[in-house]
């Protein structure tokens, strides 16, 4: 048994420690807001927060998570998270929406640590792939969220 701290709760999971966190979140715990996209940390669809840091959960084993606190899209509620979700909805960023949990987790982490990011900061932090290419709206929405947070 491995104990994980997910969304503020301790979860006991009976899995091989080498199992990626992503699949434990999705298949074992049932938190499916976090998506599988590539399995090699290239696309970011699986982004969660690990002690507040944006982390690609497909490439972290549950054995390596240790006592770190995991937050998924289902439980984000910081000021930055709310601002990001509000901006995303106002600008209708989503198309297929499959990558957007990861995008929102990345944007939220960015704004939590850097509430007034420059365009370069946004480009450096938002490396998640979106095949619908909603990138222009993502950029605008991150700026909009920063504005809402000032608000």
């Amino acid at each position: 048994m491995i104990t994980l701290k997910v969304n503020g709760q301790d979860r006991q999971v009976d899995v091989d420690p080498a199992t990626p966190l992503l699949w434990v979140l999705r298949d074992t715990i049932g938190l499916t807001g976090t998506k599988y996209g590539c399995g090699i940390a290239a696309c970011g669809a699986c982004t969660v927060h690990m002690d507040g840091q944006p982390t690609r959960s497909c490439s972290v084993t549950v054995g390596d998570v240790g006592a770190a606190s995991i937050t998924t899209i289902e439980a984000i509620e910081s000021k930055a998270a709310k601002a990001v979700q509000t901006a995303w909805q106002k600008l209708d960023v989503v198309q297929c929406g499959y990558c957007q949990s990861g995008q929102i987790m990345a944007a939220t982490a960015l704004l939590e640590s850097n509430p007034k990011p420059t365009q370069e900061d946004v480009e450096a932090a938002m490396t998640n792939i979106c095949r619908c290419a909603t990138y222009q709206r993502i950029k605008t929405a991150v700026n909009e969220a920063a504005r809402i947070m000032e608000g």
Partner: peptide, 27 residues
């Protein structure tokens, strides 16, 4: 007019085929 699917897709609540889980389901 805003998209009907924006709220679900920005909160992790949208269910895609990958998210379907049925009793006793195998992978």
């Amino acid at each position: 007019l805003r998209r009907l699917d924006s709220p679900a897709k920005t909160t992790g609540q949208q269910t895609f085929t990958l998210d379907v889980k049925l009793p006793g389901m195998l992978y």
